[in-house]
Amino acid sequence: MPEPDPYENPKEAVAPTGAGGAMDLAMSEAETLERGGTGRPRSLWSDAWHQLRRNPVFLVSALLIVFLVLIAIWPQILTGADPLRCDLSKSQQGSAPGHPFGYDTQGCDVYTRTVHGARASITVGVCATLGAALLGSLLGGLAGFFGGWWDALLSRIADVFFGIPVVLGGLVFLSVVTSSTVWPVVGFIVLLGWPQIARIARGSVITAKQHDYVQAARALGAGSGRMLLRHVGPNAVAPVIVVATIALGTYIALEATLSFLGVGLRPPTVSWGIDISNAAPQIRNAPHMLLWPAGALSVTVLAFIMLGDAVRDALDPKLR
C-alpha cells in the first residue's frame, strides 16, 4: 500500500521534529510572547505599559509621585498642625520632640511648612503642564497638519517666545501682579512653555501624516478633521507626553526660583521657594531651615524627570 502524500492533505502533514521543527517552535513561542499571550499584537501603549512595569526607575518615581500628590491633596496625612501658626520665642531653634525639622526665623514649624508646601508646587507644576501641553499640542498640531502660512506664522511667533529669558520674563511679568494665588505663576509658565510643546507636536504631526495609513484614509475620502483626530493625532501624541512629563519637574523648579526671587508665590501661600528664600540669609546659623524645603524640592523635581525618562524609553523603540 503506497504511503500517503502529506502535500495532498495539509491537515495530515506531520511537523518536523529535527532542528527545523525546534526552530519553528521557538519562533512560535517568541511570537506568542511578543503578542503578550493574548493572540493579538500589542499596540504602542500596551507595549509601553509592558516595558514600564518592568522598569524599576518608573516604579520608584511613580510611587514617589503618588505619595507627593497625596500629601499635596491631604497634608493632614502627615501633620495636623497649622503651617501659619508661629512662635517667635522658638525662632531658629533646632529639632525638638514633635518638631523633627526645627523652627524657621518666624518660629514656624519647618516640618509642617515642608509638608504643606507640596500643594502649591504640585498645583503649579500640574496646571502649567496641562495648559502648555493642550495649547502647544493644538497650535503645533494644526500648523504641522495644514502647513502653509499658518505654519510659518506659528513658527515665527514661537521664535519670539523662545527669545525671552525665562527668569527675566518672570521678573517683568509677575512684578506687576499683586495676587498671592498660584494662577499668575501658572499663566506665565504656560505663556512661555507652549512653544516648546508646539514645536514637538508640529514635528510629530508632520512625520505621522506621511504614513501610508493616512494617505489611504485621504484617498478613501476622509476629511481633514477625521484624519487629524482618528489617525494623525493618536500616533503623534507620544513625544508630547514625554516632553510634558519631563517639563513638569522643570516647571516646579521654575516656580520655586521665581518665589525665591520674590515675584512668584507670595505669603501667606506656603511654598518651598518662599521658605528657601527666607532661609538663605540664615544658612550659617540655622541650616536646617534650608535643608528640608530644598531637599523636598529636589526630590520632587528628580522624581518627575525620572518618570519622564522612563516614559521616553518605553515609547521610543529605538532606545530599547
Rank of each mutant, 00 (worst) to 15 (best):
E3N: 11
Y7G: 01
K11G: 04
T17G: 12
L25S: 13
S28I: 02
E29S: 06
T38M: 04
R40M: 12
L44Y: 03
L44V: 14
S46L: 05
H50Y: 14
P56C: 03
V60S: 09
S61Y: 04
F67Y: 13
P75L: 03
Q76V: 13
D87H: 12
S89G: 15
K90S: 11
Q92V: 06
P100I: 02
F101M: 14
F101W: 13
V110N: 04
R113C: 00
A120K: 07
I122K: 01
I122S: 00
A132F: 05
L138K: 02
F146H: 08
G147W: 09
G147R: 10
W149S: 07
W150E: 01
D151W: 03
A152Q: 13
L153P: 01
L153N: 02
D159E: 14
I164Y: 05
L168H: 06
G169D: 07
L171Y: 09
V172N: 01
S180I: 06
V190D: 04
L191Y: 05
G193H: 07
G203N: 12
S204C: 04
T207F: 00
A208Q: 14
V214C: 04
V214M: 02
S224Y: 08
R226F: 05
L228T: 05
I252G: 02
L254F: 12
L258T: 06
S259V: 13
F260Q: 11
L261D: 11
R266A: 04
W272R: 08
L291F: 15
A294W: 05
A296G: 12
R312N: 13
A314W: 11
L315W: 10
L315P: 06
P317F: 07
P317D: 05
